[in-house]
Each structure stands twice: as structure tokens, then as C-alpha cells.
């Protein structure tokens, strides 16, 4: 039997790695990948809590489905933004996208 904390630790590890990607990677697509990993970690958490809570209460899975939908939308919009920026500025490097600079 796998304790709940293992799943949570696993999800935390995935989240931390995703966070690292978001913070440290130069490429916007890579950052997007990090975001997807973080979202996945969240879904893992949700499903794990559902399983170890009351499985007949379907709320955890329903929430997970919503997060899936959000992830899909986020991926679509994020990638469209990246394409658009690429088209306008010939770059996908996050550090070069700094129009909001002081």
C-alpha cells in the first residue's frame, strides 16, 4: 500500500522541477512546458486526495477535469502568444520580451 505522502512528495518534486523550468529556462516554449508539468503535479495531488479521502465523493476528479480543461486552454493560448510574439519580434526568448521595462 502506497502512503498518501509518497504521492504528494512526488507531485511536489514535479512541481518544483516545473517551477525551475519556469524560472530558469530562456525559451518561452520550455517555460510553457514547465507550466504544464506544474499543472500535472496539481492534478496528481487532486486525484491522490480524492482517492485517499472519500472516493464516492467525485469532487476531486471533477476538479481535476476542470484543471485539464484549463491546462488545455492555457497551452493553446500560451502557444498562440508565443507564435504571435515570434512573428512580431523574431524571438521566443523570455528575457528579450521586456517591453514593460522601466
Amino acid at each position: 500500500m502506497v502512503p498518501l505522502s509518497w504521492y504528494l512528495t512526488f507531485a511536489a518534486a514535479l512541481f518544483a522541477l516545473g517551477l525551475y523550468a519556469v524560472l530558469a529556462r530562456k525559451n518561452a516554449v520550455a517555460i510553457l512546458m514547465g507550466v504544464e508539468i506544474m499543472l500535472n503535479a496539481v492534478i496528481v495531488n487532486l486525484v491522490a486526495f480524492w482517492r485517499y479521502g472519500n472516493p464516492s465523493d467525485i469532487a476531486g476528479q471533477a476538479f481535476a477535469v476542470i484543471v485539464f480543461a484549463v491546462a488545455a486552454a492555457e497551452a493553446a493560448v500560451g502557444l498562440a502568444l508565443i507564435i504571435s510574439i515570434y512573428r512580431r519580434r523574431e524571438t521566443v526568448m523570455a528575457e528579450q520580451i521586456d517591453l514593460m521595462k522601466w
Binding site: L19, A94, E95
Partner: peptide, 14 residues
């Protein structure tokens, strides 16, 4: 600190 880069902001926030 207002570099205009999303990642810097996120770093500070976190």
C-alpha cells in the same frame, strides 16, 4: 528590479 522580464517578477514573487 523592474526589468520587464516575467521570470524576474515571478522569482521575486515566489
Amino acid at each position: 528590479i523592474q526589468t520587464g522580464r516575467v521570470q524576474d517578477y515571478l522569482l521575486i514573487t515566489l
